[in-house]
Design a protein around this nucleic acid. Sequence first.
DNA 1: ACCGAAGTGGGACAGTTGTCCCAGTCGGTT
DNA 2: AACCGACTGGGACAACTGTCCCACTTCGGT
Lengths: 198, 198
Amino acid sequence: MTRIPAAERRAALIDAALRVVSRHGLAQATTRAIVAEAGMSLASFHYAFASRDELVDELITTVVGREQQAVLPDLIPGQTLHEIVEAGLLRYFEHLRSDPEHEQAMLELTQYALRSPERHPLAAAQYAKYIELAARSLELGAEIAGASWTVPVERVARVLVAFTDGLTLTWLVDRDDDAARAVAAAAADALTRMADTR
Amino acid sequence: MTRIPAAERRAALIDAALRVVSRHGLAQATTRAIVAEAGMSLASFHYAFASRDELVDELITTVVGREQQAVLPDLIPGQTLHEIVEAGLLRYFEHLRSDPEHEQAMLELTQYALRSPERHPLAAAQYAKYIELAARSLELGAEIAGASWTVPVERVARVLVAFTDGLTLTWLVDRDDDAARAVAAAAADALTRMADTR
DNA sequence: ACCGAAGTGGGACAGTTGTCCCAGTCGGTT
DNA sequence: AACCGACTGGGACAACTGTCCCACTTCGGT
């Protein structure tokens, strides 16, 4: 096996772990399964990480960062706010459809974090980032559409995140594309009503 | 130990299992943990159930039935449809607040079911029941308010379920009551717009 | 060329898990 | 009272898990 510095090995193991979790779930993501996916020996695992928990914690915190651009709206001038918001939601939906297992993995990681008091902050931080990202998108969208939010953007953003989560969960269960699009439309509707569209 | 027929033992074990899952998560719900919670010996478990999987499957299918009445709206005549729907959502939210671990357990069971192809139908059936229940409530609500849905009720119901899920997930993470109420209000808004309020 | 540190491999360990077995005991029917 | 099948308890097993250890190899700086 070629020699790899510990830092790179950590990254490689986290990538492998995410793949395993996506494919088979967190419960199946044993040290051996992760190491096999990464093509390493078992000892390398505990050379790079003190424990499996340490890897999972880092998996949770790092993976959120990559989610970033998915929800960012197309900023096409001339569109109404409603169109922009709905397009953003539909874009997220396409992202979900293209890699359902990934979103399922994220959900699973969140739920895992919720289980222990010391990990709960990880989930909270994850969501704080989502909300911040959503808030930025919403502000941008309003600007383009020449509208302004009549409710604090953070509040609108939180509602958007909630709607997105609901969309994700229900679609993962019934895989009903039309229904999901209806959810997106309804969500866009509700959100737009929190703005003053001059 | 007093003698208990197998059928009762199955019920007792399922109750115990739900308690364990609520408290510590599905991963911690080992045969031994469940049996300890139920105050039985380990052998009784495999006398009542062929395997742990069999118990979990039955846990998923039976537990949904008890959820039923939580979302049913107060049917106070004279209220607008918007008020009725929002009240229903807030009632669900109070239910969630009063026993968060239970909803967390339901979420976990759903995700578990999503993981294997042969269990996926269990999750789908679970959601079908949710949607049916929601549809009945929505129909009743519209009747009371003297309104009518302009979109098929099942479609409205699916959106309601999605919104409810989103509300649940986000509140479980950040425990922000005000934000959750804002989600409920926005959801009621979106849903009401799918009706013709004469 | 050499040497300490960084990285590697294989094997081992103890703890936990699902499942099973078997000898026993109870309760109701005959 | 006898008996048969339903139920019980304890212990065992093999598989799997996270973690550790130790001998070994390779690399970068001297």
